[in-house]
Nucleic acid binder design. Structure first.
Ligand code: FES
Ligand code: FES
Lengths: 158, 158
DNA sequence: ATAAAGTGGATAATTATTATCCGCGTTATA
DNA sequence: TATAACGCGGATAATAATTATCCACTTTAT
C-alpha cells in the first residue's frame, strides 16, 4: 500500500508550472527532464492533470502546459485525486457477508471505520495548496528557487 | 493505492478468534474456509499476526490459533500494521532533491504533509478495537452471530 | 507409528504500476 | 504550403507488488 510516485512528480510539476509567467507554457519533455521522470510515462500523468482541470495543454509548435487554476485553488488532495483516482483506500471484499451470511450490503463496519480514517487523511491534504507549498519552499530554499526560475525562463515558450 | 485484502480478512479472522472459548483453538484451515480465503495464502497472513503478537499458534494434532491479547487491546491499527508493515503510505523519491539540487535530505515538504495526513488516518484506526467492533456487530446482527458461534463450537478443538 | 496441525522457503500466477512506441491532430513559422 | 515541434490516445511491453500454491519439515495428541 504505497502511493504512486506519480503523485510526487505531479506535485512538483505543478509547482514548476506555478513559477511560469502568465501566458507562457512549458513543454512536457522539459518538465519530465527537470524531475528526472520517464518522459513518455510522465506525459500520461500530465494528461490526468489536464483531465482533472488542474492544468491546460497547448498543442502545436509553441505548445506545452500551464496552470489552469490559481495556485491557491489547487489543493494537494486535488493532485492526489487526479493521479490516483477516486477509489477509496479500503474496499471491502464482502468477507463479513460470507461470514454472517447476509443478503443485503451497506453493512460492513470496517468500511465505515476505514472511510472515517480516510476522510481524516483527506482533510490534511485539503488544507495545503500549491500556493502554501510554494510559499514554504520559497522561504526555505530561496537561492535554489532562483536557479529554478532561471531554468524556467530558458525552457518556457510564449 | 489499495489496502491489501489481507487486512480485511485478518480483522474478521481475529473477530472469530475472539468468539472462541478460553483455552480453545481454531485450525487455520477452518478459519480460511469461513472467510472464503485461499487456505495457503491465508496461513501466511496468520503467520504475520503471530509475529505481531496478536495471536498465538499451537502446533500438533489439536493445534490451531487463538488470541494472544485481550480484544480491548487489539486495535484495528495493530492488525493493519501486522499485515501491511510499518512503511508509510507515502515515500518520497527525492524529486525535490534533483529539482532544487539539494545535497542533504530531511527536507521534503511533501513528506511532512503526507506524514501528518497519515498520522491523522492512524488515529482513527487506533480508536477502534476488536472489542468495540465485536460489540457493534453483536448488537447489529445478533441472530447471525449466534450461528457463527455455533459453527465455532463445531470447529474448535481444546 | 501415525495423522493433524503449524513453519519456512521456493516458486508460480495474477494484478498493478511504470514505461515505450507509433500514428495522428494541431499550430507557429520558414 | 510544407515542415517541425508539440500534445493525444491506443496498443503494448517491462517491471514490481500481491496473491496463491507446493513441499519438506517440526510439533504433538492419540
Ligand atoms: S461485508 Fe463489507 S459491506 Fe457487507
Ligand atoms: S526531496 Fe523529499 S526528502 Fe528531499
Amino acid at each position: 500500500m504505497q502511493m504512486k510516485t506519480g503523485v510526487e512528480q505531479s506535485v512538483y510539476a505543478i509547482l514548476i508550472l506555478n513559477m511560469l509567467p502568465d501566458k507562457a507554457v512549458l513543454p512536457g519533455e522539459a518538465i519530465s527532464q527537470q524531475l528526472g521522470a520517464s518522459p513518455t510515462y510522465f506525459q500520461k500523468l500530465l494528461r490526468k492533470l489536464v483531465s482533472a482541470n488542474l492544468i491546460t495543454s497547448v498543442p502545436g509548435v509553441k505548445g506545452g502546459f500551464k496552470l489552469r487554476k490559481k495556485a491557491e485553488d489547487i489543493r494537494i488532495y486535488d493532485i492526489y485525486l487526479a493521479i490516483e483516482g477516486q477509489q477509496s483506500l479500503y474496499s471491502s471484499s464482502g468477507v463479513m457477508h460470507g461470514m454472517l451470511d447476509l443478503e443485503e450490503e451497506g453493512c460492513c463496519l470496517l468500511t465505515d471505520l476505514m472511510q472515517e480514517a480516510e476522510s481524516s487523511w483527506q482533510t490534511v491534504l485539503k488544507r495545503q495548496t500549491i500556493a502554501s507549498l510554494y510559499e514554504e519552499i520559497n522561504v526555505g530554499y530561496q537561492p535554489k528557487v532562483q536557479l529554478l526560475q532561471q531554468w524556467i525562463k530558458e525552457k518556457m515558450v510564449m
